[in-house]
Amino acid sequence: MLQTKDLTLHYSGSQILYGIDMAAERGQVTCVMGTNGVGKTSLLKALSGTHHRSGGSYTLDGEAIAKPPAHALARKGVAYVPQGRDIFPLMTVRENLETGFACLPREERFVPEQIFELFPVLKEMEGRRGGDLSGGQQQQLAIGRALIAQPKLLLLDEPTEGIQPNIIQQIGRVIEYLRDEGKMAIVLVEQYFEFAYGLADEFFVLTRGAVSLSGSKASLTKEEVMASVSV
C-alpha cells in the first residue's frame, strides 16, 4: 500500500531524515517509534505532503507520488491527524468534520453515522466550537475528521499525547476497529510504549533520522523494541 525508498527530508539546509525505507499495508497498524526530535513528525509531514521530502521515492498503491500539494494528496486518500490536532477553533464540531467533504463527490457528502458511533462525544458536542473542546475531545474530533473522506492511508501523530487513560483506551479501540475493517493502512507515531506495542503489527524505530530497527511484531521481542526506543 505505502512504500518509501531512501526518503530524505531537509528543513532549509539541515537534514532531518536519512534514507528512510518504510512500508505499510492495509489492515495493519504500522508503528513509528523513537525519542523526541528524531524526525517522526517530519516523516508524517513528508507522507502527507505538508513538507515535501527532498529525495527518495514514495509510492501509494503502486502509484509513484511526485511532490503534489497537500490537498492533492488528501484527495488521493491520505488522511492526517497531526500532532497538536489542529482543530479549526472557530468552527463547530460538525463543520470541522465537514471540511473533509472537499475530498468527496457531491452525492457522498454526509457525515457517516459510524463516526458518531466511534466517538459519541462528537454527537453530543456537534454544535460546540472546536476550540472550546477539551484536549481529549479535540483528539477524537481530529480522528473523526480524518475518517470522513474514507482514506486509504491514515497518519496518526501521537494521538495519546496529553490525553487521559479512558480516552486513550477508546482511541485504541477505534484504531483496532479500523485495522480489522481492513480498508486502510494505519501509520501510528507513538511514544506511549504499551499503547503502541499493543496495537502494532509492524515496527519502525527511528534514531536520529534513520531507521534503526524494523520488523513485524512476531519477528521482534518486546524487550528488543523497548531497548531500541529508550534513551
Binding site: 490537498h71 477553533p89 471540511t99 473522506a149
Partner: peptide, 25 residues
C-alpha cells in the same frame, strides 16, 4: 455555503485545510 466553510477553514488554519483536501490557493 460550502465556499464559506472552506473560506473559514483556510483562514483559521491553511495548512490543516489543505490536509483536509481544500485547495487554499
Amino acid at each position: 455555503t460550502r465556499l464559506g466553510l472552506e473560506v473559514r477553514a483556510v483562514t483559521q488554519n491553511p495548512r490543516m485545510a489543505a490536509s483536509m483536501g481544500i485547495n487554499p490557493d
